[in-house]
């Protein structure tokens, strides 16, 4: 192993809620520029792990380093000292997060959503932030909708604004928690296209998803989690096409069925609309 730390270096991460252990010792490394897809059945701890990475949850065991810096603590005189609110906020600035339910600020327009953090967290000037915000909206294909409020946008458009909002802080790492699973099937593609473009541009990404096509095509590595542990990981063609572990096989065949059902339903709907 080289002495250069990967961008994300998570070691033996433990997390419990009210005494129930949800993460039971997760080890995951993500190199700069790498895209990994986190797969696993519902309740396996994927969301919780993402939230631990940007400290929306505090962990009870293990360590997470982001770009060589220990998350949430400082080591002084052989003891860990908890960082204060301000310094944790500063660490989160380096990490963009995209939520399943978008979580756009409903009282602000698309452009104002994107400008919010650069202006009020990073201290960028308004004019510069606005210029950058318009560029970002252009990049996610929404250059025309700067002044729309989230409620006036479709789910797919909202999620693209949310991605642009996270990018506005120039994060080193982007976390995606099932970014397309709250969307109507016909809107999934536009969001995945933006993420694909982002991956191609070299962004480091951890993506929780059930979109196998995306994982196969975009991920450098696929990590399969179940019951709060990493069951297996490797290149997508190995893990998805030729899973070694029984639990991975069961999960993938269930997902395959569901995807086929979805596709059939979508086809029927499109056919019905064309009539």
């Amino acid at each position: 192993m080289s002495d250069v730390m990967p961008l994300v270096h998570a070691v033996n991460v433990h997390k419990s809620f009210y005494g129930v252990e949800v993460l039971k010792g997760i080890d995951i490394d993500v190199a700069a520029g790498e895209v990994i897809c986190l797969l696993g059945p519902s309740g396996s701890g994927k969301t919780t792990f993402l939230r631990c990475i940007n400290q929306l949850e505090t962990i009870q065991g293990g360590r997470i380093w982001i770009d060589g810096e220990l998350a949430g603590y400082e080591e002084k005189g052989g003891r860990l000292h908890r960082l204060n609110d301000k310094r944790i906020a500063a660490q989160r600035r380096e990490i963009g997060m995209v939520f399943q339910r978008f979580n756009l600020f409903p009282h602000k327009t698309a452009l104002a959503n994107i400008m919010e953090a650069p202006v009020h967290v990073a201290g960028t000037g308004k004019a510069e932030a606005e210029k950058r915000g318009r560029e970002l909206l252009e990049r996610v294909g929404l250059g025309e909708r700067c002044d729309a409020y989230p409620a006036q946008l479709s789910g797919g458009q909202q999620q693209r604004v949310a991605i642009a909002r996270a990018l506005a802080m120039d994060p080193k790492l982007m976390l995606f928690d099932e970014p397309t699973s709250a969307l109507d099937p016909e809107l999934v593609g536009e969001v995945l296209a933006v993420m694909r473009e982002l991956a191609a541009a070299g962004m480091t990404m951890i993506v929780v998803t059930h979109e196998m096509g995306f994982a196969r095509e975009v991920a450098d590595r696929v990590v399969f989690m179940d019951g709060g542990v990493v069951v297996e990981q490797g290149p997508p063609e190995d893990v998805i096409n030729n899973p070694q572990h029984e639990r991975t096989q069961a999960f993938l065949s269930r997902i395959k069925e569901e995807t086929e059902e979805h596709a059939a339903a979508l086809k029927e709907r499109v056919a019905a609309e064309e009539l």
Binding site: A89, R92, L104, H120
Partner: peptide
């Protein structure tokens, strides 16, 4: 989720309260 989205962008708890939660 509003507070979390604000915190994920790097806002401190106080700023998230003032700028995002209270206006809503």
């Amino acid at each position: 989720g509003q507070r979390e989205a604000a915190c994920a962008l790097g806002m401190s708890n106080g700023k998230a309260m003032r700028r995002i939660v209270l206006p809503q």
